[in-house]
């Protein structure tokens, strides 16, 4: 009798263990295990291999040579392109997250108040999100074209001069930022709208009874209760911003813009790996970026982890 109980609680084989688990647990495992395996094989193992590579001089063409921390030391001490691209990346990330976030928040507030046609506007704003970044990049490249582009045509029509949007180091990154904000706006609006619709209407009604105006309601009800949404948008925006590559590559014709003014860290990584065939060095840049993203995410979580309750 004792033995039987023991077998039930501590089954010997995997099959017995599976049999002894609840049906719901088995279902959850059946659903999760393929995804976990997929992630492990196609993300986890390559990541570990990339970390291993970062300690080698390696180009897939010659035998790899172990160089210890040399790739990291080079990145920190001699790779001036890394610092320039990091600065560009931070500029890009801050602009898209802050400016894009503020614009999306305002649009979401306006859309939330619309009773008729809200779905239409949501669809319109969301359309660029479902378009390929490459297509969007090509589209904006033509909009910015100095001679025939619609933006310069408009500037000239209202009596202003032409700007060399993507051809000038002063405006190349800005041009990419504008296109990227336009592309991502719909997604952020939808997230804000979901958050706004989760705020109970009774809170606004109570505030109205107390004589609060629109600004006060936004300031004291909407913004505090949207804190989790802001955190989500901030974290995903920062991560996406730090990983930006496609739009720069497409809009600058693959060269990072005049004087590398629109070259981001991932662009630099790509160029190092596939332009110069320096896989080990590129892997070290990837892990420097990884550490930056982790540190920023932890900081953000720490400073935004306050709960709001009314």
């Amino acid at each position: 009798m004792e033995l039987k109980t023991s077998n039930k609680t501590r089954p010997g084989t995997i099959i017995e263990k599976i049999k002894s688990t609840k049906a719901t647990t088995r279902f959850v495992l059946a659903v999760l295990i393929p995804s976990a395996l997929w992630y492990l094989i196609f993300n986890g193992i390559p990541m570990i291999y990339a970390f291993y590579l970062s300690f080698f001089k390696m180009n897939f063409l010659d035998p790899p040579k172990f160089v210890g921390l040399q790739n990291y030391i080079y990145s920190f001490t001699q790779d001036t392109d890394l610092y320039l691209s990091l600065l560009n990346t931070v500029n890009f990330m801050l602009s898209t997250v802050l400016i894009g976030g503020i614009i999306a928040f305002i649009f979401a507030l306006l859309l939330n108040d619309i009773k008729k046609g809200a779905a239409f506007f949501r669809t319109v704003y969301f359309l660029p999100v479902v378009c390929s970044m490459v297509a969007i990049g090509v589209l904006w490249t033509w909009l910015y074209q100095p001679r025939f582009g619609i933006i310069n045509s408009f500037l000239q029509f209202i009596g202003l001069g032409r700007l060399m949007w993507l051809q000038s180091p002063d405006t190349a990154l800005l041009s990419v930022i504008v296109a990227s904000i336009w592309k991502g706006l719909g997604f952020t609006i939808v997230i804000f709208l979901a958050g706004l619709q989760g705020i109970p209407g009774s809170l606004y009604e109570a505030a109205e009874v107390d004589g609060a105006n629109r600004f006060q309601k936004i300031r004291h009800i909407t913004i505090p209760l949207l804190r989790p949404t802001f955190v989500f948008i901030l974290i995903t925006g920062v991560i996406n911003g730090l990983q930006a590559f496609t739009q720069m590559h497409v809009m600058t014709g693959g060269d990072g813009g005049p004087l590398d003014s629109a070259k981001t860290i991932v662009f630099h990584l790509y160029e190092t790996a596939f332009g110069n065939y320096q896989m080990g060095r590129a892997a070290s840049i990837a892990f420097i970026l990884f550490v930056i993203i982790v540190v920023l995410t932890v900081i953000q979580l720490k400073f935004t982890n306050k709960k709001i309750q009314y």
């Binding site: 100095p146 001679r147 032409r162 060399m164 949007w165 051809q167 000038s168």
Partner: peptide, 11 residues
């Protein structure tokens, strides 16, 4: 830059 036979941003 002097004779301006082309310009920045030209095709």
């Amino acid at each position: 830059n002097e004779m301006r036979v082309t310009e920045p941003g030209f095709l």
